[in-house]
Amino acid sequence: MNIADILKDRKSIAKAITEIEEGNTELATEALRGIRGAWVIGVTGVPGSGKSTLISKIALKLALEGKKIGILGIDPTSPFSGGAVLGDRIRMRELNKFENVFIRSISTGGKLGGMSYHTPDIVNVLDAAGFDTIFIETVGTGQDEVDVMNIANTVLVVIVPTLGDEVQVIKAGQLEIGDIFILNKSDQGAADEKIKEMTLIMKERKDGWIPRIVKSVAVRNQGIDEILRLIVEHREFIERNGLKKNKLRQRILYTIKQHALNRMDEIMKNEEIEVYIEKVMSGKDISKVIDEIMLEMGVGYGKRGKD
């Protein structure tokens, strides 16, 4: 199977994504093997902070330069019905006129962390299809959703002026993962105060990068050029220091891990798992029962590819 032949146009890319979400692991594997090295930009932040609008404005400039842009917008799945309202496209209408842009909306499927199990697969599909830059818009997040750092080359964390004080800023979690912080809606609230608070954490990272912060008002197109400049600066930093291949390896490993977790999750949803209650309650060690569950129920999941 040559993945590039399969992903020949808009429709076939869209169909491939659906197939992977349905559990076609052969296609997921080929997408991994077909990776060409797109620059992946993760965009995360609280609901309503302006992630979709920012992506639309940034992507518009790149699209005008002729770059091939892929965008994945993730929204939450209802814990009650299993359905979802996926609304990230609303803010991206101006991208519809570009042949070189592809947008797909994804539901989390109830998975925590800010993305769905198949998000890395879908990034790989777009990468294999030859997109230069891929944006991942996570669900609106809070403090603890940091998964996107495992598949993004550059992480943008979108914040707004009105939330919390310095103590929120120094806590662990999402504010640790931003390569670039965007203070959007900076025409509202005490924006300069927020910038001052944020400087507390603008310290050199393990890889040597010093995070930056930039003010924007996405709806008025303010700050977009500066964001683009910082993305380029971060990319050059990563490439200059030979870190790109680490990031790619991390994405591949994360893809495999998500398949493992997905399979585990599917097993746990199986009603037949109830039969193991008695084994534990009659005194068999939980850990040994789990070994048994994996052996007995772990096979036959999904549509398996060839060996």
């Binding site: 808009r10 209802s78 009650f80 019905s81 299993g82 359905g83 979802a84 309202v85 996926l86 609304g87 496209r89 609303i90 209408r93 519809n96 947008i103 909306s105 539901s107």
Partner: peptide, 23 residues
Amino acid sequence: LMDEGFEVIYTGIHQTAEDIVRS
């Protein structure tokens, strides 16, 4: 429709036919 278990992609107002079919 979300409450009925569907995944709904809501694209908003002022869409052209081209926008809709492309989406």
